[in-house]
Computed example of a mutant assay.
Amino acid sequence: MKRTSFADWQCSVARTTDLIGDWWTPLVLRDASRGTTRFDDFQASLGISRNVLSQRLERLVGEGMLLPRPYSLRPPRQEYLLTEKGRDFFGVILAMMAWGDRWLADGEPPFPLRHTTCGHVTTPQVTCAQCGGRLDLATVEPAGPADPDRERRPGARAAP
């Protein structure tokens, strides 16, 4: 089955899904954010096949999220470092983690986080860049077009 591309949609959620919308890409980025840089280490951590891992790393390099850097000439080997764009994805990982800890974890979160600035164990949350208040469905509304990609979705009818 051919995968639908969302790369040309105006919606940032759709475009992000187009980039990370498979099982492995978010996990590769999660491991990279934990300090994994080498192919064999990604493979051992994830249990992913070599060809799938190669494809995911190539895509993340092409998207500017990882930067390959040689660390051995014989045999030729490279490590993969997060770029600024890749490091910025950590907020997405934190949001996924917070949701999973609340709705999917059996008991305590499997990987608690400590905020190094204050030293407290914390739960990630999304906050307003202006006032610091928590953002959730009850406190956010569209400030622009509600659904610029409505016409692109299969089965969508034109707006009245």
Rank of each mutant, 00 (worst) to 15 (best):
F111C: 04
L135S: 05
P70I: 01
E63L: 07
P75N: 08
G133S: 12
Y80T: 03
W24D: 14
L29W: 09
T116L: 14
S5Y: 06
A158P: 04
T25Y: 02
F90K: 00
W23R: 13
E84G: 10
P148D: 06
L135H: 10
V140H: 01
D149M: 06
Q130F: 07
I93E: 12
V140G: 02
P148K: 07
R153W: 10
G62H: 05
S54W: 01
P110Y: 03
G132H: 09
L29D: 07
T4A: 10
M65T: 05
D8C: 01
A7R: 11
V13Y: 06
R30Y: 11
R74G: 01
W103M: 10
G35F: 10
G155D: 11
T16N: 07
Y71I: 14
F39A: 01
G133L: 04
R56H: 12
T16Y: 03
V52W: 04
T127M: 08
P112W: 08
L137D: 10
V92D: 04
R56Q: 14
D149Y: 07
G62R: 04
A7V: 05
D106L: 09
P110T: 08
P75M: 09
A105N: 05
A32R: 01
Q55P: 00
L113W: 08
D31K: 11
F111W: 11
C128V: 05
R69Y: 04
R59G: 03
P68I: 02
P145T: 11
